[in-house]
Design a binder for these strands. Structure first.
Length: 588
RNA sequence: GGACCGGUAGUUCAGUUCUGGUUAGAACGCCGCCCUGUCACGGCGGAGGUCGCGGGUUCGAGCCCCGUCCGGUCCGCCA
């Protein structure tokens, strides 16, 4: 008799003889009758063992949680009053006539029930058991559905799935590479790809007009809840296209995934420029579910006696913003927020508590009031439209620090004050990024990557690179960057120029990118593309706080696998074969 | 590299500071016995601890001090 799937069993099977197999979710031994909840995937079927069949009954008495068993018998309707509405199979049960233990199990190192919370450390050590829990079964299934829908969508839009090497060449700049030593070419190293960027551009040169790949990428940088050393990108590239076309494609792709996986119709995604986003939110990946906005108040304080505000108000490289909330906070809370913005380099956090908005003389409370003129207070009151009970925070200083600290404060206040509607989806496009980011020492680094085309002309790029705008775009969802892309440079002259602006010498460019620069000279079509972070997308769709929860076997914050104990030492023989010597003394 | 939070039974936690003191508790799980309609079954009984690790202070440390390891959140980092 072949095995039936538990999920397929319904009242239609009443009276039928069937066999099932699975894990023992739970046993209720009443002495005279034994109930076994048998689990297969996420589905559970109640098996009844009656004492009449002495042999089976004896076996059943020895069964423990998570044994793997097979049972055959007849599907019966449950007696009246014993129907369990919480179970999909709650109206039926399997009256066992045969039962065998296929595999025993030691007691679990932690309980798999949904009712018991388990720490992540334990879960990761026994990840294969953690994955048995219905919650994990569900998320892994959803993730599979997501990638399946993506494949279908892209394939039906004529995109070709093409694999690119995992063993490739180390690239300068950017993230640190994971490196693979070569035995055949001793002393030389491959690198794992940070992304298939150059290969997908080469595929455009090869004439594959539409490429995609769901592909693992590797970056040897510190992790976060939304960053793992290895992660998965939905990598897309297209020839003879435009930013509008790629954004349109990406938007339809995400809409399709939400429709098919969650049955949610996303409205058209708003588009915002980078500079507007920074101005309003201090961030290039704002969570639009958060209603708070930064308000520039430079104009009010341009002649201020109060240096903390007056100086930045006069300085082009500085910013002065207010952030208003409709809550009155305790002193200790304000102190906490002051500490919080300190993490981002802010020297302090000025604030005004509005006790009575109708009395600008006595109704305000703040250590900085005595430095502010009546005019300034009145202008502030008008511009911010303050009401009694409000608190206003101020950020003043270098643009970067104000944006980062006040942007982070906006997010934190949004969370703490529960201003964010967690049921909502807030996608948006950010475009018109600068081509380069300027470091404090004036040096430039790519804000996207060095193959991004500017939407300005080349002259502008050379004369004033820090002001040049890139033909690039990011997709942001609920405050997470879930995708980003650009139109690419498609001639070697422009590509060489950008590399030189980045401070990469001609020799270095030749050594690292020579093959690519040469390829650009053999008829390169204009092209561009985008890449989405599958892990982040799945995390958001599954309503999880960390991408670890949507990765079957993730690593810890220190890039360690608690289950396999990777990374680990290799033998001296292996090292010798690879011509490598460690500079670390091995522990005793 | 840095800041902060955590590490006590198999698991989840209480106990920990201001205030160190005899035998470190609970719940769930586990083991044994009982139980014929439960479904997070129930009842009775039992076992289970290097308080992450190392050092120090003290008559005495889970608790105080120093160091260290592990997990998490964040800064730096992430073209």
């Amino acid at each position: 008799m072949s095995l039936s799937k538990i999920s397929s069993l319904t009242k239609k099977n009443l009276g039928k003889k069937i066999s099932v197999a699975g894990w023992v979710e739970n046993i209720r031994d009443h002495g005279g009758v034994i109930f076994i909840d048998l689990r297969e995937g996420n589905e559970i079927l109640q098996v009844v063992v009656e004492p009449q069949n002495k042999e089976i009954f004896k076996v059943a008495e020895s069964i423990r949680d998570e044994f793997v068993i097979s049972v055959s018998g007849e599907i019966k309707e449950r007696p009246k009053g014993t129907i369990n509405k919480k179970m999909i199979t709650g109206e039926i049960e399997l009256d066992s006539s045969n039962l065998s233990i296929l595999s025993r199990s030691k007691p679990m190192p932690f309980q798999l029930d949904e009712y018991v919370k388990v720490g992540e450390e334990t879960r990761l050590k026994y990840r294969y058991l953690d994955l048995r829990r219905s919650e994990m079964q569900e998320t892994i299934r959803i993730r599979s559905n997501i990638s399946n829908e993506i494949r279908q969508f892209l394939t039906s839009n004529d995109f070709l799935d093409i694999e690119t090497p995992m063993m490739t060449k180390a690239t300068p700049e950017g993230a640190r590479d994971f490196v693979i030593p070569s035995r055949v070419n001793q002393g030389s190293f491959y690198a794992l790809p940070q992304s298939p960027q150059l290969f997908k551009q080469l595929l455009m040169i090869s004439g594959f007009g539409k490429y995609f790949q769901i592909v693992r990428c590797f970056r040897d940088e510190d992790t976060r809840k939304d960053r793992q050393p290895e992660f998965t990108q939905i990598d897309i590239e297209s020839s003879f296209t435009s930013a509008e076309e790629i954004m349109n494609l990406g938007e339809n792709l995400i809409k399709e995934v939400f429709k098919k996986v969650l049955n949610i119709d996303l409205k058209d995604f708003p588009v915002m420029t980078y500079s507007e986003s920074i101005k309003k939110f201090g961030s290039d990946k704002p969570d639009l579910r958060n209603p708070l906005e930064l308000i520039d108040v430079k104009d009010i304080f341009s002649d201020s006696e109060f240096k903390v505000f007056g100086d930045p108000a006069k300085d082009a490289k500085s910013r002065l913003v207010a952030l208003k909330i409709s809550n009155s906070l305790a002193r200790s809370q304000i102190d906490d927020y002051t500490k919080f913005v300190g993490n981002y380099g802010a020297k302090g956090l000025a604030y005004i508590k509005v006790n009575d908005a109708n009395d600008l003389k006595e109704g305000l409370q703040s250590p900085i009031l005595k430095f502010l003129s009546e005019n300034e207070i009145e202008s502030l009151s008008n511009k911010l439209n303050i009401s009694s009970g409000d608190t206003v925070f101020f950020g003043a200083g270098h643009k970067k620090i104000v944006n980062e600290s006040m942007g982070a404060l906006r997010e934190k206040l949004g969370e703490d004050l529960k201003l964010i509607d967690k049921e909502k989806w807030a996608p948006l496009w950010i475009k018109d990024f600068p081509v380069f980011e300027e470091a404090e020492d004036g040096s430039l680094s790519p804000s996207h990557h060095p193959f991004t085309r500017t939407s300005d002309n080349l002259e502008m790029l050379e004369k004033n690179p820090a002001m040049a705008i890139a033909d690039a775009y990011d997709l942001v969802l609920n405050g997470y960057e879930i995708g980003g892309g650009s139109m690419r440079i498609h001639n070697s002259e422009e590509q060489r120029k950008v590399l030189s602006i980045l401070g990469i010498s001609e020799e270095a460019a030749e050594e690292k990118f020579g093959f690519f620069l040469e390829a650009l000279d053999y008829g390169c079509p204009p092209h561009g593309g985008i890449a989405f972070g599958l892990d982040r997308l799945a995390m958001l769709i599954c309503n999880k706080d960390s991408i670890r929860d949507v990765i079957a076997f993730p690593k810890t914050q220190s890039a360690y696998c608690l289950m396999t104990d990777a990374p680990s030492n290799i033998s001296d023989d292996e090292l010798k074969e690879l011509a490598i010597r460690s500079t670390i003394q091995t522990k005793d």
